[in-house]
Amino acid sequence: MQEKELNDLLNKGKEAVEKGYIPSAQVFFSQVAEHKNSPEVRSYLAYCLAKSQGRTQVAAKTCIESIRREPDNPTHYLLLGRIHLLADDKVKAVQVLRQGANINKDQRIINEISKLGMRRAPVIKSLKRNHPLNRVLGKIFARLGLR
């Protein structure tokens, strides 16, 4: 297969992932992986595996390995963050997405972070977020414009 055909399949797979057509995306990425097994293709295949079969641990390990190989590619961070969200681990997802945003201001990562509805840290970090003192101080500081 020629490089142009591989890029077309890769773009079709990316578009299918963004639209939520995971089985189609998996087919496209599998075809690309037969000829070009790049870290990006492996990350997308891992995300498809997590989304379709729920195998989030295997998928996360694959994305982490891709990050080790290409630490400057924000796509790996985006997909790993989404995998953590599939595994109901919002804390890890936020950490990974913030790392990706620090490396590259990719709009997809910024959109994912904004969808999560990030909250500020509690006023008194040693107390739980829902502690009455943190809640009252948070409201007061917000009204005063200090937060």
Rank of each mutant, 00 (worst) to 15 (best):
I83Y: 01
R147C: 03
E34C: 03
A60L: 11
P132L: 13
S30K: 10
Q2E: 14
Q26Y: 12
I140Q: 07
E18V: 05
R98E: 12
V27H: 06
K12R: 14
R98Q: 14
G81F: 06
A142E: 15
R120D: 13
D106R: 09
C63D: 06
A142H: 09
Q31C: 03
F28D: 05
V123Q: 02
M118L: 15
K4S: 13
G117D: 05
P39G: 07
H76Y: 05
N134K: 05
N73M: 06
A93D: 02
P132M: 12
E3M: 09
V136M: 12
A59K: 04
A16P: 03
R143H: 08
Q2D: 15
P74W: 09
N73A: 09
R69C: 02
N130P: 00
K92A: 10
K105T: 06
G145M: 07
R98F: 02
S52R: 14
L49P: 00
L137Y: 04
L80D: 01
L6Q: 07
V91N: 11
L9A: 02
L133S: 02
L45P: 01
L6D: 04
Y21E: 15
V94L: 09
D89W: 07
S126T: 11
Q53D: 13
P23C: 09
P71V: 07
A93Y: 02
P23H: 09
E18W: 03
K115Y: 06
K128V: 05
Y21N: 15
Q26A: 11
A33T: 00
K61Y: 11
H76W: 06
R129G: 01
V136P: 00
F141H: 08
P122W: 12
D106P: 00
